[in-house]
């Protein structure tokens, strides 16, 4: 097992162009990938966590995301942005995980993922107040792709163009989806607050 002990190399200043070039070179790929993990683990983690709500599940899915990326790094040729490529893998991993969870519970794709709320109840890494908990309850009522759009836009303030590249959906459809999601959440909050 290769042990990566050069913490300084992970922490060096991140330059995407250089990293992408190094990812193509067998001599530097591992060091470059370490920088990729350091750079993207945080945004990807939060993207996943806001979908599955549990820290443990998010941690597992983040590891799977990077393992998948590492396993297919030779297919990344820099045509898309590295972040877009990683987000796509993370989103696919998350949606696959949620689909399996729903299947175990005999839930349909459009059903609200209320079982996820149990993750919040039992998660020691959630210390939100009542309003924040209610907001998560409202978000969970949305279909999963709309939830994804809402999280990306509302919490991360991601640009629609970037979301469009990640999700393969038009900007117009994403704007409409966000608008409807916000409206549904507002209605849910008004009814439960």
């Amino acid at each position: 097992m290769y042990l990566y002990t050069h913490k300084a190399e992970i922490m060096q200043e991140y330059n995407e162009d250089i990293v992408v070039e190094q990812l193509q070179n067998p001599a530097t790929v591992r060091q470059a990938f370490a920088q990729v993990v350091a750079q993207y683990s945080k945004p990807l983690y939060w993207q996943i966590r806001k979908m599955v709500l549990s820290h443990d599940d998010a941690n597992d899915l983040l590891q799977n995301t990077f393992l998948k990326a590492w396993g297919s790094i030779e297919y990344f040729r820099g045509d898309a942005k590295l972040s877009t490529w990683l987000y796509r893998i993370a989103v696919n991993e998350t949606l696959t995980f949620l689909a399996k969870e729903r299947e175990q519970r005999n839930l349909k794709a459009d059903d609200a993922d209320n079982f996820l709320l149990l993750n919040i109840e039992s998660d020691e890494f959630f210390d939100g107040d009542r309003a924040q908990r209610l907001l998560q309850e409202a978000i969970v009522q949305l279909p999963e792709k709309q939830r994804l759009v809402f999280n990306m836009r509302y919490f991360d303030e991601m640009k629609y163009e970037e979301m469009s590249e990640i999700m393969g959906t038009s900007v117009g459809a994403l704007k409409a989806s966000y608008h409807h999601a916000a409206k549904k959440i507002e209605e849910y909050l008004q009814a439960h607050i």
Binding site: G128, L135, A182
Partner: peptide, 19 residues
């Protein structure tokens, strides 16, 4: 986009944390 009044009140913090 403009946030709706209740969303505005809650803000963008989600209350989740990490070890």
């Amino acid at each position: 986009e403009k946030k709706t009044p209740l969303l505005d009140e809650i803000g963008r913090k989600h209350g989740m944390k990490v070890p």
